[in-house]
Structures are given as C-alpha cells and as structure tokens.
Computed example of a mutant assay.
Amino acid sequence: MDQTQDSKFEDSFLPMTSIGSGIGVAVLPDVYCYTDQIVNLVLVGNPSETSEFVLVDTGMPKSAEQISDMIQKRFGEGAIPKAIILTHGHFDHVGSIAALLEDWNIPVYAHEKELPYLTGKQDYPPGDPNVDSGFVAKMSPMFPNHGIDISAHVQPLPSDGTVPYMSGWKWVFTPGHSPGHISLFREQDRALIAGDAFVTVKQESLYSVLTQSKVISGPPRYYTTDWDAAYESVKKLEALKPQWAVTGHGIPMSGEELSTNLQYLVDHFNDIAKPESGKYVN
C-alpha cells in the first residue's frame, strides 16, 4: 500500500460535519445507515440473526476508530465485516479504508472501471467550484482527489451482478458521478443503496449539509464529470421502483416520498441536478 498517497487524506483540511454525524439508523433490520460527518456508510447484516455482515463504503479520513467502535456496538466485540463494497472511490467514501485494512485482512470489491483510482494508477479530476454558489462547491478544489493504492485487497465485482457476501443483492452500474460508480439493489424488498448516484441533501450548500435538510438531488455536482451518464443512472434506478433508499449523503427516504421524489428528479433532472455551467458540463 502506498502510504505516501494515503497520508494526503490525513493532511487534508476537512472541517465539515452535520447534525447527523455519529448517528446510526436501522432503515431495515439488516440495513444500518451510519453518518460519518457528512457522508453515509452502511452495514448490511441483521445482528439478531447473524454475526456476518458487509460494510458499504468507509467514510471520511481519520474515522477508522469511530467506524470500528460503531461496528462493535452493533455486532459485538471484535466484529469485522466479511468484505467492504465500494460504491466508488471518492475521498469521502474511502477516507478510512487504508487504516481499517491495517487491522482487517478482508477483501474489497469495486467496479472494474473504478480500480485505477483504487490501485494508485489514476487520480480523479479535481472538484469544480463553478457548478454552484454553495460554500461546499466553492471548497471542492481543496478536497483530496488523488487515487489510493489498496491493490493488495481490492478486486472487481463479479460480472454476473451478484455481490459477494450479500445474498439477494445485485450491483447496478450507475456511472456519471464517477466512471465506475455502482449502486446496490435487493429485489425482495426493493431496498436500494444508491451511493452518490442521487442524494437526499443539497450537497453543494454548507447550510444544507450541516442541517441535513431533506430534498431530492442529483449526484454532488462538484465531482460529477459525465452528466449524460448521471441522468441515465438516475433513470435506471427510478425504473427499479425502490421502496427504501440509503444515499451517500442525506437522510434515507422510503415509500411514497421516495417514489414521488425520484420520479420528479427524473422529470426535472436538468433543472434540479445538472449545473448550468462548469468544466464537466457538456
């Protein structure tokens, strides 16, 4: 592992948090959403039925101890996941993965198109401050955009759409926000872990992030580099008719609130999600 690359996360100025930080909620008995500062990670597994579970995404830098403590409170002392599934590799979704993997000898799975950013071969494009007037968007060029090297652990997701250690779930290719972004869907109860394909907070606004004001939104604008693909991904997820959704940022949505808002996002994507201008806007 390239410790020099990973140490850049530790040196980054990342003061943002929210009123939801440190709070977890069982969206379903086996789907636990935990907020780490401004981003959500998910534990998939029912602690009343099994000691086995999977961690989806790994939160912000410097959160490894907090994440480990949260896991042990939910699954017991010494508990570690069977695997880590990454929706994508942006800093707020892999911020603590290197530190966690120092203690956990477990596999990590991501889409093959995301692997260059997870094996130290490629960096993400920098954040674009011109996509929105919000303070988070303006700060985005300061956010880490470098790739990390976890090549000793990471491997591509199975090509048949199954998700290792997550029976009944399938991964859905939802690029746009990043080249290899994926979401996770379970047909049985129509549960969706959307990552940043869409979110339920206006992520560009510091006030909205701090207060976690719930509103349907597209992927975070400052990091989204392919808006045509992002729109197709939102349409793909809406077509699944999810009844429960945990997104990478914001409060989970369910039922009619989710279906109505997701349809509205599809119908008004250019107005709600896509910025009027920016370096990654066609």
Rank of each mutant, 00 (worst) to 15 (best):
D92V: 03
P220V: 02
T174H: 05
D196T: 12
A197H: 13
S68R: 12
D36S: 02
I38C: 04
I38G: 00
E49C: 10
A194F: 11
G195D: 00
T35C: 08
G127K: 01
K73E: 09
H153A: 15
A83P: 11
V234N: 00
V234A: 04
T119I: 12
G89R: 08
L100T: 09
D6M: 10
E232S: 14
T260K: 14
P242A: 14
Q212P: 02
G250Q: 02
Y124N: 02
K170S: 15
D271W: 11
V56D: 07
V27P: 06
S151N: 04
E204W: 14
T225Y: 07
H93A: 10
S159F: 15
Y280A: 07
H88Y: 14
Q72A: 10
G161K: 02
T260Q: 14
T174S: 09
T211P: 03
D160H: 05
L14N: 06
D196L: 12
H146V: 14
Q122M: 08
Q3T: 11
M60S: 01
M253N: 00
A83D: 15
G78M: 09
K235A: 08
P175E: 13
K235G: 06
L101C: 13
Y34H: 11
N270I: 00
S48A: 09
L101M: 12
I67D: 03
R186D: 12
P116A: 04
E49V: 05
K113V: 05
L258F: 01
D189Q: 10
N105R: 08
Y280G: 02
Q263I: 11
V44P: 04
T119M: 13
S183M: 00
S151R: 12
S140I: 01
G24V: 02
Q3Y: 11
V131I: 05
V31F: 03
V246A: 10
T174P: 02
Q203A: 15
K73Q: 10
I38D: 07
N40I: 13
D271Q: 13
L206K: 07
W227V: 01
S159I: 15
S167Y: 06
K241P: 00
A79W: 03
D128E: 06
L28K: 15
K121I: 05
Q3A: 14
G45F: 02
S68A: 14
I85S: 08
G20C: 10
L192H: 06
D123C: 05
G24E: 08
S233A: 10
G168N: 11
L206N: 03
A83Q: 09
L157C: 06
T50C: 06
I193V: 05
L157F: 11
G24D: 07
S183Y: 00
D196F: 14
V27K: 07
L115D: 06
A194P: 01
Q3D: 07
V234M: 00
D2E: 08
D132E: 06
V201I: 09
D6N: 13
I150R: 05
M60L: 07
E256N: 09
R186M: 15
P252D: 09
V54H: 05
G45N: 10
P47A: 14
R186G: 14
H88G: 03
R186T: 13
W227A: 02
C33R: 13
V108P: 07
M142G: 08
I80H: 15
V154C: 01
P81A: 11
